[in-house]
């Protein structure tokens, strides 16, 4: 009898990854730890845990890290500027949702 062995890849559901360590977040975002630490100091990211070793980030932070890196690279804004842009984009997103509900 012949068997076909099929390799099945198992992934993780990103919404449910709420406990990424600093290094895991760096790996996923292709970023250096120093940049992430700066973002935490700036208040862009707010991980659970007190020390850097015990920091745990939700997966939703990945998109924020990538956006900040793109703003810095593409538009040459500093971290505070990128944080402000991120905050304003969030606000615009919320307002768009409100507007859609009204229409």
């Amino acid at each position: 009898m012949e068997y076909n062995v099929i390799k099945v890849y198992q992934g993780t559901i990103t919404d449910e990854e709420n406990d990424l360590t600093l290094l895991q977040l760096c790996d996923i975002c292709n970023s250096l730890p120093e940049l992430i630490i700066e973002m935490v100091d700036e208040g862009i990211l707010e991980p659970m845990g007190q020390s850097k070793k015990s920091w745990r980030f939700p997966f939703s932070n990945v998109e924020n890290v990538r956006k900040v890196l793109r703003f810095q690279n593409d538009l040459d804004v500093n971290l505070a500027g990128a944080a402000l842009a991120l905050h304003l984009l969030d606000r615009i997103g919320q307002l768009e949702v409100m507007l859609e509900r009204r229409l």
Binding site: I6, K7, V8, Y9, Q10, G11, T12, I13, T14, D15, E17, I28
Partner: peptide, 16 residues
């Protein structure tokens, strides 16, 4: 071949 985990919701993403 990707395993679709039980309990996944519409629009969610799987990361491999």
């Amino acid at each position: 071949n990707v395993k679709i985990p039980k309990g996944i919701k519409n629009g969610q993403k799987i990361r491999l």
